[in-house]
Amino acid sequence: MLAIDTSNMDFLELGKRLRETEEDTVLRGCLGQRFIAAGMKRRKLEIHGIPGNALGAYLDGADIEVFGNAQDAVGDTMNAGSIVIHGSIGDTAGYAMRGGEIYVEGDAGYRAGIHMKEYHEHLPVLVIGGKAGSFLGEYQAGGMIIVLGLHTDGPIVSNYPCTGMHGGKLFLRSDCKDILFPDQVTARPASAEDLKEIEPYLRQYCVHFGGDYASLIGSPFTVVTPDSRNPYRQMYVAN
């Protein structure tokens, strides 16, 4: 594995170094460099330290593992591959992602999973181990968001989840009694059938971060789905 010491290296230099090779790479001493692995195709990338904003933007098949926290816009418009964060992440994680998987051990900031979408066989998955901030899954058009609420006492998600949701599914490991959902979605207790869908991703979470799969899948989940794929249809009159 190629090793790059990224301390004292700016993002332009780091980006250039990463584009020069297709080898699996480990970055040490990462200190907030932005755009790491933008558009990166199939290879492994291990990051020690804290990558800056837009880690794995347009990711196209690479597998990234971060030993530390990550900042905003992780996996923005991601197409394929995986991002595993041994820590928490900032805002807009997985913005408009349409493929691949993101696993976060800890918490996510605002607007996680905004405008996630799916098509044909492409199904993006975002798993948040801790709690999610406000505006989770806004405009969600497809894919799956799973929030586990581990390591936290407070509500599993902050205000206004699912606004504008018109596709995909949101799973919250909670009875969601205190959570206010908008009118255009339905929140109900997850059935055994529903839980089958998330089983492989929960197992994968435990592989990445440890944890007891049986107790995870054994707890009550709420599943949220949109009522319509065409939320704006009734809003207009031809002029």
Partner: peptide
């Protein structure tokens, strides 16, 4: 567009980032 068939393609007013 890489979105499901028959689904509204909604471009939010702002880029949320």
């Amino acid at each position: 567009r890489m979105i499901p068939e028959g689904s509204d393609a909604i471009s939010p007013a702002p880029h949320h980032d």
